[in-house]
Nucleic acid binder design. Structure first.
Length: 558
DNA sequence: AACCCGGAAGGAGG
DNA sequence: ACCTCCTTCCGGGT
């Protein structure tokens, strides 16, 4: 019996990671996690994707006919543990108050929003032993639809997600629409050091959020901003899960992972998540620590390692396969001499060096190339790190990443390569003749960063440059002595808050089920066909019909 | 067709 | 107003 409970707990644990990943993938803003009671058997032949399914009201936790207890009977239709994702417009009316005590949508969702502009994703979890159901609801994350409490919840999420100093909430007594009208400067004044970040996040949410008529980005390089809300961080399993059926009150308390962002002003603000709990699931982006505040303070004797780690340590809610260990625990970087040429360390860094933080193209490329976890090798990779020769593996993809970084979404390889060619004349880059998409760095990053004005490089020819210029076999070259350890720690003290390449890529690639979801002995099936319906088009067009649905089925194969 | 090159104009931000 | 660092567009070459 204990083993079964333990298994179930592990299952919950993994499911929550899955949820987090899914939230990221679909850019949903989790607002609530509420337990529901296990359903009684009731025949419901309506297919999950049927427009005629009466599921909507049930999904919203409202009482429907023949369902006086607010129980979702459909759950009992399935023989195995299942996750059922649904997405659709919120269609409840004020005349039908929810009778589902834990799921008070009326108080949690702004009722003055157009019903077509809103969506709720609900997750039902059923264990085939019948002991537990859970229900998760998520709201879409178009910031323009946020109310004041949403805004505050978002800010708290940002505080944690990006390790920002506490915002002065008094300066953000506004709804999402007002928040979105703030300029970068406005945001910077309200939250010094994080204005850029907030601005970029909001712009991104607006641009790629659930705007009507827009498609969900399909490109593998499209960033999915990590809506890994702290209030939805999974919690370690507790034995309370085994009592959920018989004790609804306990269930309510125990299954609520962490406080939902309260939209009910009476209930106050969402609490901060328990860091000790969340740390195993979500590594805060150390690389985005407040630059001025943390300058040097989080540097230790393992400075080199940490600096490199932190730069590319985005928010992570790892999938089940990676929950057993801290996702970004400090570890040593390769220290072979071959890695030290273009693999920056912080040793040479000084606070006087300008911090480009990926804003400059060469810097951006360096960060991708030198990612300690090698997450960008599908975009760009070293051909010879010693000589600085690299190859753009995926030109359009890389260009898109760059465009995202610079907020020029029409960026393509043609334009980006033009920028690269401008580096020729300033001796930052040169083309590797005869090899497509191959370029060579002629300066190492610390050298470049030490030069405040890149254009000075036009006159300033380094010995290494002279050396490499005359040779046409860059792959065979050795670098000069002055091409010492370079500096990757430039982000560490950055005041800039542009999204790092690591974050972009991480957000894109994090969600890779089912391969990455190793819920043993569970087997995950994803109905890709139904997932296809999860588009903005469908979101906007299906407002009067059954919401598109996504079904994730987990079967116990043991 | 894709890639590569560099001129020209202009924009955003400092 | 000026500068840097691109971005955008383009004609031409390989």
């Amino acid at each position: 019996m204990k083993r079964k409970i333990q298994k179930q707990e592990n299952y919950i644990y993994n499911i929550k990671n899955l949820i987090s990943a899914f939230i990221i993938k679909m850019k949903l803003l989790p607002i609530q996690l509420t337990p529901i009671q296990p359903g009684n058997t009731r025949n419901n032949d309506a297919p999950l994707h049927s427009p005629s399914s009466p599921a909507t009201s049930t999904l919203l936790g409202q009482t429907s006919n023949g369902n006086a207890n607010g129980i979702d009977h459909r759950l009992s239709l399935f023989n195995h543990s299942e996750l059922i994702w649904r997405y659709g417009p919120l269609t409840f009316s004020s005349a039908a108050p929810p009778t589902y005590p834990p799921l008070d949508f009326k108080n949690h969702l702004p009722t003055n929003l157009g019903k077509h502009s809103f969506g709720v994703l609900i997750l039902y979890v059923k264990f085939y032993n019948g002991n537990l159901y859970e229900k998760y609801s998520f709201r879409t994350c178009d910031p323009r639809l946020w109310n004041k409490e949403d805004v505050l919840g978002f800010l708290r999420w940002c505080e944690i997600e990006f390790d920002l100093p506490h915002f002065d909430v008094d300066l953000f007594q506004m709804n999402g629409k007002a928040l979105c009208l703030l300029t970068k400067q406005d945001l910077g004044e309200r939250c010094p050091g994080a204005g850029d970040l907030l601005y970029n996040v909001l712009r991104w949410l607006i641009r790629d959020g659930y705007s009507a008529g827009q498609h969900l980005p399909q490109s593998p390089v499209t960033p999915h901003f990590p809506i890994t809300s702290p209030w939805c961080l999974p919690i370690p399993p507790t034995q309370e899960y085994s009592h959920v059926t018989s004790a609804p009150t306990t269930l309510h308390n125990s299954v609520t992972l962490s406080p939902a962002p309260s939209i009910d002003s009476q209930s106050g603000s969402p609490k901060q998540p328990d860091q000790s709990t969340s740390s195993a699931f979500s590594a805060l982006p150390n690389g985005y620590r407040n630059g001025t505040n943390n300058s040097g303070s989080n540097q230790s004797d393992s400075e080199v390692d940490d600096s490199a780690e932190n730069i590319h340590s985005p928010v992570s809610i790892p999938l089940a396969s990676s929950t057993s260990s801290p996702p970004y625990s400090p570890r040593s970087l390769p220290k072979s001499s071959s890695n030290q040429i273009f693999f920056p360390s912080s040793e040479n860094s000084s606070s006087s060096e300008p911090n480009t933080n990926g804003r400059l193209l060469w810097d951006f490329l360096q960060q991708l190339l030198n990612d300690s976890m090698q997450r960008y090798t599908n975009y760009i990779t070293w051909k010879n790190r010693e000589s600085g020769v690299f190859k753009i593996v995926d030109p359009p993809g890389l260009a898109k990443l760059w465009g995202i970084q610079k907020n020029h979404l029409s960026m393509n390889y043609d334009k980006m390569s033009r920028a690269l060619r401008y580096y020729y004349r300033v001796n930052i880059l040169r083309k590797v003749q005869g090899e497509r998409h191959c370029y060579q760095f002629l300066r190492n990053p610390s050298e470049l960063k030490s030069i405040k004005n890149i254009s000075l490089l036009r006159q300033q020819m380094s010995p290494s440059l002279n050396h490499t210029k005359v040779k046409h076999e860059p792959l065979e070259e050795n670098v000069d002595e002055d091409m010492g350890p370079t500096d990757l720690s430039m982000n560490q003290n950055s005041g800039s808050r542009l999204q790092s390449p690591a974050v972009i890529k991480e957000n894109v690639d994090r969600f890779q089920f089912p391969q990455d979801l190793s819920i043993s002995p569970m087997h995950l099936q994803v109905n890709m066909e139904t997932r296809e319906t999860f588009t903005r088009d469908n979101l906007s067009n299906s407002s009067n019909s059954m919401p598109p649905q996504i079904q994730i089925k987990i079967e116990d194969t043991s």
